[in-house]
């Protein structure tokens, strides 16, 4: 009886729950009273400009950074080595062990989790196939390309068959092929019921992968929801981008039914009815423009502003 109730609570209760989570470095408040809950089996994203506090938040989930204030539970427990036992981590910067080969890196990591050798080698074979690294098993990590290193880091994060995988910018700096390959692996994981937490600067990545996300800036959560809901809430349905150098002859006030944002190289015109605007632009000689549906990037820019960070 009690076993079955605890099973029910564990499968429906959130994997991560944070209330009033706060991190202060000296006088700098880096994470400022944020609340979030991450449901089991979902992919949850943290979006935000450089320095928003994403990595710091993830480090608190891992116990690598003590929180200044707030409540934080993972699997319903406070953060501890026990919670890390059930988590996998892909850090922002690769930290593979350069003294070892690909397969040795995985064996070593398995030993940190005290996974028995035989079991570990079964998992390693599977993970090498999963990340398409079987051919590279004896390669030294320094000889791997950036994409291979990242895939190895992902394989390493999965060695303990984690229920929750934390990925800090998993595809930053990788070519499109690798990025797509990683997205498809992450989708597979989520399909198997693994909960994913992801930070990213790529809006496409967030739109494709995240069931829910928060947009952070200056340590605060600006909004929270599904990608669709966020787009609907913050921007008009359609966008027309006009190349600035071709827009000389346009009088912005004359553009029909739209809100114009100047991004330097382009003018972004947000609108619910694109047809009159398109007509107007087609009648203006030399104007180069592009029509597309609004996306997360528009939400991101609207919420976090356009000035440079750092």
């Amino acid at each position: 009886m009690s076993a079955s109730t605890s099973h029910i609570t564990s499968s429906t209760s959130p994997v991560v729950s944070a209330k009033g989570l706060r991190k202060v470095f000296g006088t700098l408040t880096v994470v400022d009273d944020i609340d979030f809950t991450i449901p089991r089996g979902k992919c949850f994203g943290f979006l935000g400009p450089n320095g928003a506090g994403k990595t710091t938040t993830l480090r608190m989930l891992l116990g690598l950074s003590p929180m200044t204030a707030g409540e934080l539970t993972i699997f319903g427990q406070p953060v501890s080595p026990k919670t890390r036992e059930r988590m996998g981590v892909v850090p922002q910067l690769d930290n593979l062990d350069p003294d070892f080969s690909v397969i040795e890196n995985l064996e070593l990591y398995a030993s940190y989790f005290r996974i028995p050798r035989v079991e570990a080698s079964v998992r390693i074979e599977r993970l090498l196939r999963f990340t398409a690294l079987s051919e590279k098993r004896y390669a030294k990590t320094e000889t791997l390309s950036g994409g291979m290193k990242r895939r190895l880091t992902i394989a390493r994060a999965l060695i303990n068959e984690p229920e929750l995988v934390v990925l800090d910018e998993p595809t930053t700096g990788l070519d499109p092929q690798v990025r797509h390959a990683i997205w498809s692996r992450l989708n597979d994981l989520r399909a198997q019921g693994t909960t994913l937490i992801l930070t990213t600067h790529y809006m496409e990545e967030a739109e494709r992968l995240c069931d829910e996300l928060v947009i952070m800036d200056h340590g605060r959560i600006l909004d929270h929801g599904t990608p669709r809901a966020l787009i609907k809430r913050h921007v008009e349905a359609e966008v027309i981008e006009i190349r600035s150098e071709t827009a000389k002859g346009l009088v912005l006030e004359d553009l029909p039914e739209c809100r114009v944002e100047d991004l330097g190289t382009s003018l972004y015109c947000y609108t619910h009815h694109a047809a009159p605007l398109i007509q107007h632009l087609q009648d203006s000689p030399g104007v180069v423009f592009m029509h597309r549906p609004a996306g997360l990037e528009d939400v991101f820019l609207t919420l976090t502003g356009r000035e440079l960070r750092d």
Binding site: K82, R84, E85, N95, L96, D97, P98, N160
Partner: peptide, 14 residues
């Protein structure tokens, strides 16, 4: 420089 401890600290070790 090698950040080996950071990698180990993401496991149950302290």
């Amino acid at each position: 420089p090698q950040r080996t401890y950071e990698a180990i600290l993401a496991t149950p070790l302290e």
